[in-house]
Design a binder for these strands. Structure first.
Lengths: 230, 230
DNA sequence: CGCGGCTTTGATGTTCATCAAGTAAAGTGG
DNA sequence: CCACTTTACTTGATGAACATCAAAGCCGCG
């Protein structure tokens, strides 16, 4: 995967998204002090318990937001893509992270000193309002998603995230799963074995095709029905 | 229950909590336009789908935040007490509510025009920062709680919320449940029958005493053990 | 090449929802 | 205020959904 690291702030997707309300001076300060970092799939960006020093946003890639469990069984709270502001969750209510963030695809982050962001918030109400909107939206999404998944049966849960990957994340009926079967289980609250079992069922019923990590959805209508009813 | 409705802004619990950063003029505007409303147990304050016209905060009482389900089976997302800012959830990311809020004890709310609040945010960064902190904290709490409950077995869930009521909400080992058995089920994701069954088990094991809606915890250590392990 | 982690399938058991049925309590209308 | 209806509470019996256990093949990696 190719990333362009230099320059780029002026054409950054986030430019018009949240940084548009900044005055020239602050914007300069932001672009000159911000730091771009690349993480390979599997590398951890944020660890629970660690101090929050930067505000970070994902420019490209895919990450998982999760909490560590006891016996190597984590709980994945959300999959984050660019513009999801997955890094916002605890940033303003504590000094230390409550969650972990790990890249599940090669990812490109920008880091901005958290104090600069906080300063910009207290000095610029419009920017603050943008932040409020983003964090409100993010939280809402996570909560809705969580309850939405929890109320489904196992088949419905698998159908639900397959549709999510196809329509929301990859915009393609054929995609490569960025996470293992085990992680799917951690994301939708079921055992690895049952993830596999149900994927196999869907394959036997010709709803999907499976080639290792690559999934192709043949019958999305059927999948949607299962997601709705299951 | 007795509520004092008049005056009171200067001594309001929220005064120093979020409204301290306002200048005199804005504070006057706030106190002169704010509207106090009392809701009896069972009355609904906010309905999903309805337009958001006010920012509201609970001064006294207890409410439930929930989503409506199909066959009169709702999903309770959180129990809110004063200073929880339960009304903050969708307020800044949409124009219409995604949730319902209903009083589960007689409750006293203050309503402030949402546009005034938004104006105050864009004009006063420190106030905006306060809001950011509150919404961040609230979301975090809800998410953590949800996952914390979901990973437990039924006995552990019951133990968990009993402790929550005793320690967090009522600060007393003896309290009157503000919600029905059915609602407990909706809050922690189980059927009414199993709520009752497990409460009865706890009673038989002398962990709690039950007199209708009044619960008395006899053995909180045992309850904590069950909450942790179950 | 061997080790650990990932994937897969089958067999077994437990947890929990569902169904049923009855009592108690609380609201409703004449 | 009392019959009536609805809602809340309770217990037991049954079955389904799901986790756990077991075993084996696979793959990547040091």
């Amino acid at each position: 995967m190719e990333f362009e690291l230099t320059g780029g702030c002026d054409t950054c997707i986030y430019r018009s998204y949240i940084f548009d309300d900044l005055d020239k001076e602050k914007y300069e300060l932001l672009t000159s002090t911000k730091e771009a970092r690349i993480y390979k799939k599997g590398e951890t960006i944020v660890e629970e318990g660690k101090e929050i020093t930067h505000f970070l946003y994902l420019k490209k890639g895919l990450v998982k937001l999760y909490k560590k469990g006891e016996n190597r069984q984590d709980q994945i709270i959300s999959i984050g893509k660019p513009l999801d502001f997955i890094g916002l969750l605890t940033v303003f209510s504590d000094t230390h992270y409550h969650y972990n963030i790990t890249a599940i695809e090669d990812s490109y982050f920008c880091f901005v000193d958290i104090n600069l962001i906080k300063q910009m918030i207290t000095e610029n109400g419009k920017f603050a309002m943008e932040m409020l909107q983003k964090i409100s939206y993010l939280s809402d999404q996570i909560i809705q998603n969580t309850y939405s998944i929890a109320k489904r049966h196992l088949r419905g849960r698998i159908a639900f995230i397959l549709i999510d990957f196809a329509e929301d994340i990859y915009q393609n009926n054929r995609f490569e799963l960025p996470i293992s079967r085990k992680e799917i289980g951690e994301l939708i609250g079921m055992t690895t074995e049952n993830v596999i079992r149900i994927l196999s069922e869907f394959r036997k019923d010709n709803i999907i095709k499976i080639e290792g990590k690559v999934i192709e959805i043949n019958d999305i209508d059927r999948l949607k029905k299962i997601s709705k009813l299951g």
